[in-house]
Design a protein around this nucleic acid. Sequence first.
DNA 1: ATTCTTACA
DNA 2: TGTAAGGA
Length: 142
Amino acid sequence: MTDRTDDRRHEGERPALSHAVYGISVASELTDIPVQTLRLWERQGLLAPQRSKGGTRRFSADDITLIRRIAALVADGVNLAGVARILDLRDANEALRDNNKALQEDNDILRSAAGYDFEERQSVHSQRARTDGTRNRARQTG
DNA sequence: ATTCTTACA
DNA sequence: TGTAAGGA
């Protein structure tokens, strides 16, 4: 054993998923996507790998996963514009889900703070439909 | 040696 | 779309 103490013998160690460490050629080998295609996809807005100080692309494990998802869509015949829109829709859905969750939590807090008992209510929609119908009927008779 | 952008056919 | 030039 010489003093090559910087040899990496911890084979289980892996960079964090968001840690951008792979050069474009490594990303290409890992995904079986040609280097030029990766560059094209980035220009189309499908990818946004980090850049090193020198300006070269640095891909993270998350980027590799994204590349595989894009490749799957392309293999299904989706063109690049379609892929971009599908990815945007996914992001929008996540945002909507998060927002909805936050609203529900706010609602829970407000409900308990107000002291109302909504145990009988089955859903927002059935409740609203019932009250609207009652109001309309009252207006017609009166 | 590799990667990057730009440009040209 | 592919390839070559030229810089980092």
